[in-house]
Design a protein around this nucleic acid. Structure first.
Lengths: 225, 225
DNA sequence: CGGGACATTGAAACGTCTCAAACGATGTGG
DNA sequence: CCACATCGTTTGAGACGTTTCAATGTCCCG
């Protein structure tokens, strides 16, 4: 139980969930079908629930005093979100697409973890995953060139969304602003960087997402960190 | 025991250690006194030891293919470092000042954690701390203005180095290049940003470190994220 | 005392940001 | 069912700030 506390004290970042956990949690979870653009919770709200993404895409972000929007990350199917700092949500969560989410009261969740050390273990691994994600984001944002950041972002989304690691199609339901918020770019810069990638014959974009045309140069670009 | 594995699989980031833990670990640790600039381990080496900083400053960094140096973070007294990914160090660790470090074989460490769940708990908290640090770095690097990044870096070092949170003197033993590597700036930009802070009457710099002159404006600058 | 690493400063190049406008898609109300 | 308002995207031109390249100055250590 002591173990659970720090887990829930962590700020939110990406956290995939195993099938075994989903099964265990389904019995106490409330299933919600949400439309696109629905705000699940707001930064600063008391963190009463923990959420599991059951399908669709959710974005976690915080609005900074300067008016900028810092996107912490995107949550895909089976990802956990809603972790808090000091009992309050660290980010705002909003659906990017229509989505199904499972909602679990934090108290209930703590009880479950107390009774099931194995599940507790799984949660620790989620925190570690989360850490890796934050570090991966650190590396991506460290790049100076916008096209390179976009390419690494596509790579990240491909891994996160559960599309095969050799898939050339990547769905991008989030807005350019959301991508920019994640990559520390303006939406205009995202636009221009995407155009550059297209002009260079590396990636093509349409309404649905991205399509990698030249994988060799794409991989080269990603490796050129 | 299972718990220990993922802990050691995490990449390195900041991790303070409590006195209770230090006592417990002291008996199995090898104490090493290291000169300034000593490379403790290199990125890619087999991760055989876990380290605890017993005094001094250590920098963890990775050299990217582009030749740039990405600084993951600085380790101060009581911080743990040497966590690995897939059995290999994710970063290179080098002393910034003369330092004392305690070295513990990973296998021994795992054994200790297995026998002491309480200590295991503490380690989980370290991972969560590490996560928070990575996120804090994300926010800092997200700023566009170099002086603002420097100010937030000073704030971070003040917190990490264990100087009082209201201290106006901040020791900066690391080089401008190291600071730049952490903040994603060139050493020249660090130099200019520091000069700007001085010209604006906010912070003064000398060989030893920084001295906050105008705390109100300093805090304002930090808040202007 | 000398060599080397680090820090500082300068000037120009580069790339993103900002501001602005036009375009496209979407969803709603008449 | 269409017109319209809205939101997001794209494109443009200029401003801004960091990077780059180069040179000088400073400090530390051998």
């Amino acid at each position: 139980m002591l173990l659970a506390a720090p887990l829930f004290e962590a700020a939110a970042e990406r956290q995939p969930l195993t099938p075994r956990e989903r099964h265990k949690l389904a019995s106490v979870a409330t299933r919600m079908r949400l439309p696109r653009g629905y705000v699940i919770y707001r930064e600063g709200d008391a963190a009463e629930f923990l959420y599991i993404n059951g399908g669709g895409v959710v974005v976690a972000y915080a609005d900074l005093p300067s008016g900028q929007r810092r996107v912490a990350g995107f949550r895909f199917k089976a990802d956990i979100f809603g972790l808090a700092i000091a009992g309050r949500y660290a980010n705002t969560a909003r659906t990017v697409t229509a989505a199904t989410v499972f909602r679990i009261p934090v108290g209930t969740m703590m009880e479950i973890l107390r009774l099931d050390p194995g599940l507790e273990h799984q949660f620790l691994r989620k925190v570690v995953d989360e850490l890796r994600q934050a570090q991966r984001k650190n590396i991506i944002v460290g790049r100076r060139d916008a096209p390179g950041r976009i390419a690494m972002f596509l790579d990240l989304v491909r891994d996160s969304a559960g599309e095969g690691s050799k898939a050339n199609r990547i769905a991008l339901p989030m807005t350019r602003s959301d991508i920019g918020g994640f990559l520390n770019l303006t939406s205009e810069s995202v636009s221009r960087a995407c155009r550059r990638l297209t002009e260079d014959g590396i990636v093509e974009f349409d309404r649905a997402g991205a399509h990698i045309i030249n994988r060799r140069r794409f991989d080269e670009l990603i490796a050129r960190v």
